[in-house]
């Protein structure tokens, strides 16, 4: 018994199946393509949003207020300690620099600051934290750690902003996951139903196969390959659609949202990673759909 002959038969049977019921398979392929197109768009939008959150997160700095009486070498030692603890860069802001900055931020009201008898602002170290340490939990821990250092009088890291940004990102991720699960479920149901129709159309052939001694696995294999092919074709159509979408609508979207999204928006719509993900997802969708169909309908 030749394995090659069997594989060749499965392939001929699966492609023959696609030709045998073109409309049914067209529906399945289109459904997979639409689902993957939507997933691809969501994925691209998601990565743009990640970029946005990262860029906003980059603006969150930890400000470490220092005791005014610290000598320059003590400040320098603290700066080194801070950089080691946070994995980021610390820049010293002297009291007079801080006052100037405040005056600038206050605009016309800034003149009032010159009336003060002395500069009330302490020296500070502005610390930019590495992106992977910008979660609320890690920032809180870092803040406590820094507060305990001698010469540090206070720490501020914009706790509320960080927590809000993180909550938004999590909500979007969760919403995306739920939507993706619903689309995935619906797609599997449709793929499975269309394959059941294809199996029904070939019931006579299956009956004869069984009569001449085909095993269940032999009967099922071409349908699983058919499902896999449907999924891969659906993925190819979705990738084509995403590419066309990127070419036609991409430039307009980029110019509309460039103020928000920054440099990430200039990335191509179909990246190699996304293409691989969609091809894998398409194949998996087709396989799972056909697996359910042969399991439910092909009780041979």
């Amino acid at each position: 018994m030749s394995a090659l002959a069997k594989v060749s038969y499965f392939w001929r049977s699966a492609t023959g199946g696609l030709r045998h019921s073109p409309f049914v398979h067209f529906i399945a392929i289109t459904t997979i393509a639409i689902a993957l197109f939507a997933a691809g768009l969501a994925r691209t939008a998601g990565s743009a949003l990640d970029g946005l959150l990262a860029s906003l997160g980059g603006e969150v700095e930890v400000t470490v207020y220092l005791a005014p009486e610290l000598a320059e070498d003590q400040v320098e030692a603290l700066r080194t300690q801070l950089e080691t603890a946070s994995g980021g860069r610390a820049v010293l802001v002297k009291p007079e620099e801080a006052l100037e900055r405040l005056a600038r931020e206050l605009g016309d009201l800034g003149d009032a600051l010159s009336q003060l008898p002395e500069n009330p602002l302490p020296p500070s170290l502005e610390l930019s934290v590495a992106p992977e340490r910008r979660t609320p939990e890690l920032l809180e821990r870092l803040s406590l750690q820094l507060r305990a250092l001698p010469g540090v009088t206070g720490v501020d890291y914009g706790r509320e902003a960080v927590e809000r940004l993180t909550a938004i990102a999590r909500a979007l991720q969760f919403g995306g996951l739920v939507a993706f699960a619903v689309v995935l479920f619906a797609t599997i149901i449709i793929v499975s139903a269309t394959l059941q129709l294809a199996i029904y159309a070939r019931r006579e052939e299956i009956e004869i196969q069984k009569l001449v001694g085909a095993t269940d696995r032999f009967v099922k294999a071409p349908f699983l390959i058919e499902g896999l092919l449907q999924g891969l074709l659906g993925a190819a159509v979705a990738l084509g659609g995403l590419w066309a979408f990127g070419q036609l609508v991409g430039p307009t979207l980029t110019s509309l949202f460039s103020f928000l999204l920054g440099p990430t928006s200039s990335e191509p719509m179909v990246r190699a990673g996304l293409a691989l993900e969609l091809i894998f997802a398409g194949g998996l969708l087709g396989l799972v759909g056909s697996f359910i169909a042969v399991g439910r309908f092909l009780r041979v």
Binding site: M1, S2, A3, A5, K6, Y9, I208, Q209, V212, G213, A214, F218
Partner: peptide, 8 residues
């Protein structure tokens, strides 16, 4: 068909 099933 019979021989296909048997993988000949």
């Amino acid at each position: 068909f019979t021989l296909d099933v048997l993988g000949r």
